[in-house]
Design a protein around this nucleic acid. Sequence first.
RNA 1: GCGCCCGUAGCUCAGCCGGAUAGAGCAACGGAUUUCUAAUCCGUAGGUCGAAGGUUCGAGUCCUUCCGGGCGCGCCA
Length: 597
Amino acid sequence: MRRSQSAATVPSLLMETFQSLLAKKLSDALANAGLPDAGELAQATDPRFGDYQTNAALVLAKQRDENPRDLAEKIVARLDVGDLCEPPVVAGVGFINFTLRTGAMAEKTVEVLRDERLGVAEERSTRRIVIDFGSPNVAKPMHVGHIRSTVVGDALARIAAFLGHEVVRDNHIGDWGTQFGMVIYGWKNLLDQQALQRNPLAEIVRVYKETNERANSNPQVREACRQELVKLQAGDKENTDIWNECVAFSMQDFEHVYKLLDVHYDLQCGESFYHARLPGVVERLLKSGIAEISEGAVVVFFRDNPELADKPLIIRKRDGGFNYATTDLATVDYRVNDLKADAIWYVVGAPQILHFKQIFEIARREGYAADLRHITFGSILGEDRKLMKTRSGENVPLRDLLDEACKRARKIIEEKNPHLSEDDKIDIAEKIGIGAVKYADLSQYRMTDYVFSWEKMLSLHGNTAPYLQNAYVRVRSIFRKAGESAVATPLWGVKEETGHRPVATELTLNDSAEINLAKRLCQFAEIVPQVLNDFRPNILANYLFELANSFHTFYEACPVLKSDEPARSSRLALCVLTGRVLYRGLDLLGIKVPEKM
RNA sequence: GCGCCCGUAGCUCAGCCGGAUAGAGCAACGGAUUUCUAAUCCGUAGGUCGAAGGUUCGAGUCCUUCCGGGCGCGCCA
């Protein structure tokens, strides 16, 4: 039935959204009419149908083989919603439409304004969720391929945490692959110490690539690399030291990027962390009969699962080595048994769907109860609609990409607002540039491949970060202009997100732009929990875009500081709340706002 | 061969569990600036939702087949 009444989303605070209030009233009316709960109560699909609608009568009519409009009338007769909306009307084939009273909106807006959480309730049943995202590889620079995982994973983590879940952000770094044989061989034979001093990671990448080329054409080199890997895995001192240094250099590069992106991890348990646990995993699976020996390797078959029947999974190679799958199984075990995770979310690209199906299926057979989710996403494409690469056909380093974003943002700032101070320009360029890159990812459904375009993501028009940031800047500008006079009593104990306190105890909404804006502001609390429904940050992004749009319309139509009371105070309050919702909403997406731009 | 994902306006994309006459932005065209940032707003135009069947009160959404694109399928990660 209605999402707003499902166990996961019942508000635990006193404050409730219009949606949940109306859902309850509908539920009461249905009970009153001797009918079971049915259908859903949702925001209206079109303004012509009012603000909320329900299809309860349609669903019930089908179940009971009755006339939907008659049923709708029956339900409407028992609906007691006079405090919230105009009399509900039956429309179309049997929808019931609700139009909020302006007074109710004004009251609700004040409630939201008073609430530190902007009306967003914490989930009733919270869980410990390990979120696996980012996962760069050591000895390779982070590139565009990592950005979606990092940005989407971080946003989901922020949102889940805000909703009250206990979130563990885990960076599953690729620090133990077979590539290390080549890295170590290269380190020993090809390393240029001076180059290493200048740019460590670049030098490591260089020797890795060169070794790779040699290994491809020379079997002796390939064998030498394999030997280095064997030594490393056996704990050889020299190779372990080299490995440690490579990891440290790589981490420096990651940290630089994470600082720019404002991404933080609670845990960075890379693949090497699980190394010692791998034999145990294989033993356990063999013992339980889930795995078996086949052609010298240890393999899990899924014979009773039609989808996986012809897709076995190797967990120990014929040569005795372990692989990616073994590590992932050890990781599940650690997260469930040691970290006590109720859920694990893997924010990993779509190509690995099969792999995670296999892993999850094995976890299920082993009896792990945790809720395992593979949150997939599509690729970032270049203007040619092919996987985004540099001109020479290589992956685009993330550092370079982010630097260019800031550079381009800076250029626009120079054009639009040259009188800003140098410090401001640097700060704003970073917020706009990074924000634009992140928002481009988050504003789109994660499964769609999308075309990367500087021009589009940095545009001030349309669904972009700068457009949203500009709405916030306009709010701030009003308050800068207003100065202290706008900051009056009573104080509402609101956490300082914008630095300004509201100035009215009640709102008078007259202009349609004011009403629209207030309505949007009340919807924030209805939108945020929906994101986790199907892991879609773009739902929040789209909402914020519409909010910014409503605010810009309001801004054009309704002078704030120049208007007379009570409109002035009301409008100031709308501005405060818009600023706070934008700030908080963008923060949940991991995007910062500048004060000026 | 088998499996997964995608196909919506000229372009980039929304449209979650099936809801009413399919929506934005860009580009195009026409307006608005004695102003709290025009870095904006208002308006016009633009569609057989890849194709064909099916399920039902109702399908962009679910099922089947086909077409087109991407990805994946025993010792890489």
